[in-house]
């Protein structure tokens, strides 16, 4: 089992005829993902990797049954593409674009909440169930990172995810499903909202969150554990422990203001509910072992 995506998930790709869409669709398919069709306005009648292309999502849905939409369009067009998928009734959407305007991300999340849909992204690599299926841009062939297993991983980061996941794999573990919620200040789906799915997934024995300074997503995870809605072991790694106050390091979301959202606050919140916080990436794998989590 897994969460969000498995071998049966039928995926429509928006922006499939573009360079990025074409490249990553092929790799999604090579992993085993069921890509059924693509959408690019103006390109109906063409095919990419033997899959038909349609002008609009609505048109595509007249010919195919689709479970999820993968959005490979530039950041300034992302909001419209996601709203199109949601309007057509698709309940799972992944959008990876880096650079979506803040107000657009707000409206994407708002609309997703209204539709009861799960939108993942932006500013992410997407979602992968290693050795089974993926939506996004993961080099799934890198074995020391993308190995099948029992650890659910949620992350706000890109390269740090590879770093930490490699340390999980180094200790003999693998990943059930990795969800990149993304590095934007307003991700469409937040860490805490995915915990119920990991709780229900029998193949996930523990969850690792890869967070960073700024925002309140890690604190919300602590709240969910506190409420008893998530009971599996949880290990967190948080970047930016030593970040100087008031500095904006990288992501727009990574701003510390008035002590709130600092890594120290997050560690305090998580440790108060018996979650474990690793100081170094390597400790993540070691902590899972210490906790007796089964690979």
């Amino acid at each position: 089992m897994s969460i969000f995506i498995d071998a049966t998930t039928r995926v429509l790709v928006q922006g499939m005829t573009g360079q990025e869409g074409r490249f990553w669709s092929e790799h999604m398919m090579s992993l085993g993902t069921q890509v059924v069709c693509g959408v690019t306005p103006g390109k109906a009648g063409e095919t990419v990797h033997d899959r038909p292309i349609y002008h609009t999502v609505e048109q595509a849905l007249r010919h195919h049954t689709v479970d999820a939409a993968m959005v490979f369009v530039p950041p300034r067009l992302t909001k419209d593409a996601v709203l199109e998928a949601l309007a057509a009734g698709i309940k799972k959407v992944v959008t990876i674009a880096d650079g979506i305007p803040l107000h657009d991300t707000v409206i994407i999340r708002q609309k997703a909440l209204e539709c009861g849909a799960r939108v993942i992204g932006g500013n992410t690599s997407g979602v992968i169930t290693p050795e089974v299926a993926m939506m996004g841009s993961f080099p799934h062939w890198i074995e020391r990172v993308y190995k099948k297993g029992t650890i659910g991983v949620m992350t706000r980061s890109g390269s740090l995810t590879n770093e930490v996941t490699a340390m999980i794999v180094e200790q003999g573990y693998g990943v059930s499903t990795l969800v990149g919620v993304g590095g934007d200040p307003v991700p469409a789906t937040r860490f805490a909202e995915l915990l119920a799915d990991y709780q229900a997934d029998d193949d996930t024995h523990a969850v690792v969150i890869i967070g960073e300074l700024g925002g309140t997503m890690e604190e919300e995870v602590a709240d969910t554990i506190q409420s008893g809605r998530f009971t599996k072991p949880l290990v967190a790694f948080l970047g930016g422990r030593n970040a100087p106050k008031g500095q904006k390091m990288g992501h727009a979301g990574a701003i510390i203001t008035g002590g709130k959202g600092s890594v120290a606050d997050k560690i305090k919140a998580l440790e108060a509910v018996d979650a474990h916080v690793a100081k170094r990436p390597r400790e993540v794998g070691l902590l899972l072992k210490q906790l007796g989590v089964k690979p």
């Binding site: 980061s157 890109g158 390269s159 960073e212 030593n242 390091m249 990288g250 100081k279």
Partner: peptide, 17 residues
Amino acid sequence: MCAGAGLTTTVYDLILD
């Protein structure tokens, strides 16, 4: 001279450690 905000801030943390 690193790549990715998360990894760069983590390297920053490790250097100070």
